[in-house]
Design a binder for these strands. Structure first.
Length: 212
DNA sequence: CAATAGATCATCT
DNA sequence: GATGATCTATTGC
């Protein structure tokens, strides 16, 4: 039994998004599939904040629905949804219960279970790219709607904070794939990681502004 | 390198 | 009935 990391999910959404860079995501592969029970894990190197109340790109913006119910629950819960009929996206809920907001996990650097990830992504995918991109990391780690509502402190989907004292060179920039409020500087990356997701068209240019 | 098309479906209007 | 917090392959410069 490990110590729960409540402090990791506390505070403003932007702070959580920054704090999650360098943290470790551990996933225990579900029963009934290859590698069941094994742990696959990665180091978080890219996140995006979706702010409470004021953010038109946040799924919570128009109030709770059946799909987005978990967004309004306690912080540190998994919000998983299907996008484009084909891929899942994994979020960490933030803010107190009743307020909908989250941090999207966009990319990780593979740590454990590389063979299991490659089995799900394909034999020719380079190791550094196995967990690069929100849809890809969910596929590699067998994360889908069954994970919606999971607690990141216990269970089969756990986030452990960055080791104390480790400094990650974090940068911020515009968000990716949005039609509204894409230019808000709410995307955070570990600038030195080879696993950051490729830049994609989201209109305009992708300004990278140095943060701390 | 940049732009575009197509795959595919739960959710919401 | 339209729409995505995506990804890959393909085309064109």
């Amino acid at each position: 039994m490990k110590k729960p990391h409540n402090e990791l999910f506390a505070g403003p959404t932007i702070d959580v998004a920054r704090r999650l860079i360098g943290a470790t995501l551990n996933r225990r592969l579900p029963k009934g599939e290859p590698g069941a029970g094994q742990i696959v894990s990665g180091r978080i190197v890219e996140t995006e904040a979706y702010l409470p109340l004021v953010d038109p790109a946040c799924h919570a913006y128009r109030g709770p629905t059946k799909r987005t119910a978990t967004l309004f629950g306690r912080p540190g819960t998994a919000y998983v949804y299907l996008i484009y009929g084909m891929y899942y996206c994994l979020n960490v809920t933030t803010e107190p219960p009743g307020i909908g907001a989250a941090v999207l996990i966009r990319a990780l650097e593979p740590l454990r279970g590389i063979e299991e990830m490659r089995r799900r992504r394909g034999p020719h995918v380079p190791t550094a790219a196995l967990l690069s991109g929100p849809g890809n990391l969910c596929r590699a780690m067998s994360i889908d709607r069954r994970c919606d509502g999971a607690d990141f402190r216990n269970g089969n989907l756990i986030i452990e904070p960055c080791v104390a004292g480790v400094r990650v060179a974090t940068q911020s920039g515009r968000r990716i794939g949005l039609n509204v409020a894409a230019d808000w500087p709410l995307r955070f990356v570990d600038a030195h990681s080879p696993s950051i997701s490729p830049f994609r068209r989201s209109r305009g240019r992708s300004a990278q502004v140095a943060a701390k």
